[in-house]
Design a binder for these strands. Structure first.
Lengths: 113, 113
DNA sequence: CGCTGCTATTCTGCGGTACTATATACCAGT
DNA sequence: ACTGGTATATAGTACCGCAGAATAGCAGCG
């Protein structure tokens, strides 16, 4: 999918929160999971800026662990604030999603508002 | 709904395209339709920047008509390029929407990817 | 040992988008 | 004259995802 970057704004962070909420994980793995999901063009740098933001806003706890496959990994887990943020994300998504689909349905029915 | 602004990026333009596609309309009316849809915090300035962008990218045709209720209105209609852009928007929306809902379903099922 | 390749984090600057706030214009009602 | 609704226009700000590169650690190969 080409050029979806603008539509990912505000959405990608929510995805990262959701992925972290499923269990302790680190930046590189998050990137790969996003790619597996279908967002194939997501690069490490993008995820990094998001995790940095989560750190800055105190939404995650951090633990550094050594790896046999390279440099040490920074593992993230959601804290209480992060959980709240995640729930807020899903509420916002529900809201916007329903509104857009409403608009789309009106489209298919060919009616005005 | 509070602070959904970041998640509206890239989406709002698509909504405006869709609204215009239903028939000739102008900035102020578009704003009101978006509010009626549920995006209550959208203001004229925001819509204006979008319509300006549509103009700049040659996605709309413009016709100025007098109004008895105030200054003249600038009516917009989609041209061929605008129609294409609109279709591309819905495709992107379908894509992202399905991916996010997939993530959400995994969430509710409590499974990993 | 030097090279390549994979894993993994970090840093910086950029472009695009919505929002804020304000100015301007026109008309109707009081 | 003044307020309020309609309507377009503009400058400035904040935020987010992305590109691109640097750095680090380990394994395998010739």
């Amino acid at each position: 999918m080409e050029n979806i970057t603008e539509m990912l704004k505000g959405v990608l962070e929510g995805c990262v929160l959701e992925i972290i909420s499923r269990g302790e994980t680190y930046g590189y793995e998050i990137t790969q999971q996003l790619r597996a999901l279908g967002f194939t063009d997501v690069v490490e740098g993008t995820v990094y800026t998001i995790t940095m933001r989560l750190e800055k806003n105190n939404l995650v706890d951090i633990e550094k662990k050594p790896s046999t496959l390279g440099p040490p990994r920074k593992f993230y887990t959601l804290n209480a604030a992060g959980q709240e943020k995640l729930e807020a994300f899903w509420e916002k998504w529900e809201f916007i999603s329903s509104k857009i689909n409403e608009l789309k349905q009106i489209k298919s029915k060919g009616e005005g508002i």
